[in-house]
């Protein structure tokens, strides 16, 4: 059988998978490794529900061949909280009411995470640009934008205290 071997880190842990080459990163995460926090909304890169971080950058797992993850660090929504300690973005999404059906939430939070990593105090326009690839049909985005702003401020405060 025609298989490829790929090694990468997922949420800080080394992973080695041996799968058919046609397998996407999304299929590996959801089906082979059983992490279902990463969602599938279209399978064609048009909705952003499958967004994960590849070396800190937001990418679409449905359009990533697993071999393209070789040697890279992949972060999914399951990798954000440290035990029961939620990421500031997760806390802010809950506090600001930025979640409704929740299906876009993991991808949305990861897009925001990639933004805050590069730009801890983004403008509203920068936030809108960062999450424009993540469709949300429930919230109208308003509270999501507020949550990202809040998380950015909070991260900056934490950083200032450290």
């Amino acid at each position: 059988m025609n298989l490829v071997e790929v090694e990468f880190t997922l949420n800080g842990e080394r992973q080695k998978v041996i799968v058919p080459p046609r397998t996407t990163l999304l299929e590996v995460i959801r089906e082979h490794l059983g992490l279902t926090g990463t969602k599938k909304g279209c399978g064609k890169g048009e909705c952003g529900a499958c967004t994960v971080l590849l070396d800190g950058e937001a990418v679409l797992a449905c359009l990533t061949l697993i071999s393209q993850a070789e040697g890279h660090a992949v972060t999914t929504i399951e990798g954000l909280a440290k035990g029961e300690q939620l990421d500031p973005l997760q806390e802010a999404f809950i506090e600001e009411g930025a979640i409704q059906c929740g299906y876009c939430t993991p991808g949305m939070i990861l897009s925001a995470k990639a933004l805050l990593r590069k730009n801890p105090s983004p403008t509203q326009e920068e936030i809108k640009t960062a999450i424009a690839g993540n469709l949300c049909r429930c919230t109208g985005y308003v509270k999501i934008i507020k949550a990202v702003q809040k998380a950015g401020r909070r991260s900056a405060e934490v950083a200032a205290h450290d």
Binding site: L80, L86, E91, I99, G102
Partner: peptide, 10 residues
């Protein structure tokens, strides 16, 4: 939201 944490953490 009562289901907020479960949704935010995936």
């Amino acid at each position: 939201r009562v289901d907020g944490v479960e949704k935010a953490t995936g």
